[in-house]
Write a protein that binds this DNA or RNA. Structure first.
Length: 327
DNA sequence: AACCCGGTCAACCGCTGTGAT
DNA sequence: TATCACAGCGGTTGACCGGGT
């Protein structure tokens, strides 16, 4: 049996506080401290419950409260802390002097959460949403791609697919930015995209086919492990010394896509949903062992290319822990 | 001018954790 | 150990406001 709420008592005022009530509360706390919140209203001459008084004081009247817009630094702090702590608003508030948990919670719900969702991130996990392809209208069109491929020319489809690939690459770029280090990260390691990242994302035109540059850290280690769960923009493949390795991209992790290439190092490579391909798509030139790749976490790739020996898959990929996790 | 709609945020509600008895 | 009182937390609500039609 729970206790009855303190505000159940009849006659106690609810709703917005008046200036007069604020003044009474401030005066009382400045003179006597808040003491027992339950006892405070009577002592202060307020017709409110203690809980309402405490909330009014801690969320609004406290002298050390900072009001006004959140700075980019505060915004970044909230993003970082939320990626680690989740909805622990009071804990997050302890890292933002002058900000209340209520204020941070409101800011999250009205700004940051929406921003992440619009970018295709799960606001709870801070990772790309696994249902991204059903949630983004422009990618819903992929569901009808098979019919379109049968009806239209390859050239038209190539344009469409490359556009989709550009969209995907954008998402992947941010996915890369989200990747935490394998060791337990410190908060300064940017568990979430930075404000600059978000701005860069927004500035990256959805129509251009060129993908963002590969981060130098990845270029320095062009192995599968190095690009694991990262972005390997297709347009950069020809520029790499060992492009084969980068064909083994795992960047479409868990999104049920198979990366197909028209030929080794081909800059005209395309993205295709694996569910369109019970066998290699007929409209695509024969896929060589060197150019085919299965994305880490792709749950259905094995059957997508039935008849294809699993040995064509890069050994390193099969050894990937994440692959085994899905398999 | 009137209405609608979405965003914002202060305030409330219900639950949990904790300390006292 | 069980119970109670209280503070605090997080989710939700609803009043208010500004922009659009």
């Amino acid at each position: 049996m729970g206790r009855s709420p303190c505000c159940d008592e009849t006659g106690l005022k609810k709703g917005p506080w008046t200036a007069e009530e604020d003044e009474k509360l401030i005066n009382h706390i400045q003179k006597h401290g808040h003491g027992s919140w339950r006892a405070l209203p009577k002592l202060a001459g307020l017709n409110r419950c203690g809980k309402s008084c405490r909330l009014r004081w801690t969320n609004y009247l406290r002298p050390d409260i900072k009001r006004g817009k959140f700075s980019p630094e505060e915004e970044q702090t909230i993003l970082n802390l939320h990626s680690v702590l989740g909805n622990k608003w009071s804990t997050i508030a302890t890292h933002l002097p002058g900000r209340t948990d209520n204020e941070i919670k409101n800011f999250w719900n009205t700004h940051l959460k929406k921003k992440l969702i619009q970018m295709g991130f799960d606001p709870m996990t801070h990772r790309p949403r696994t249902d991204i392809f059903s949630s983004l209208p422009h990618l819903i069109a992929l569901a009808n791609l098979k019919d379109l491929i049968e009806q239209n020319s390859w050239e038209k489809q190539a344009v469409r697919l490359q556009t989709e690939a550009a969209q995907v690459a954008k998402l992947q770029y941010l996915q890369y930015l989200l990747q935490p280090p394998t060791s337990m990260p410190s908060l300064s390691n940017n568990l979430s995209p930075t404000i600059q990242d978000i701005e860069a994302f927004n500035n990256f035109s959805t129509t251009q086919l060129e993908t963002p540059p590969i981060p130098p850290s990845l270029l320095a280690n062009n192995t599968l492990q190095a690009v694991h769960d990262s972005i390997v923009p297709f347009s950069h493949l020809p520029d790499l010394e060992s492009p084969c390795n980068f064909h083994q991209t795992s960047s479409m992790n868990k999104q049920n896509l198979v990366l197909c290439s028209q030929g080794e190092n081909s800059p005209n490579s395309q993205w295709l949903p694996s569910n369109l391909s019970p066998s290699p798509p007929p409209i695509i030139p024969p896929i060589t062992e060197a150019s085919i790749t299965i994305n880490v976490g792709d749950a259905c790739s094995t059957s997508s290319y039935e008849g294809g020996p699993s040995s064509i898959w890069p050994e390193i990929l099969l050894d990937d822990p994440l692959f085994h996790e899905i398999a």
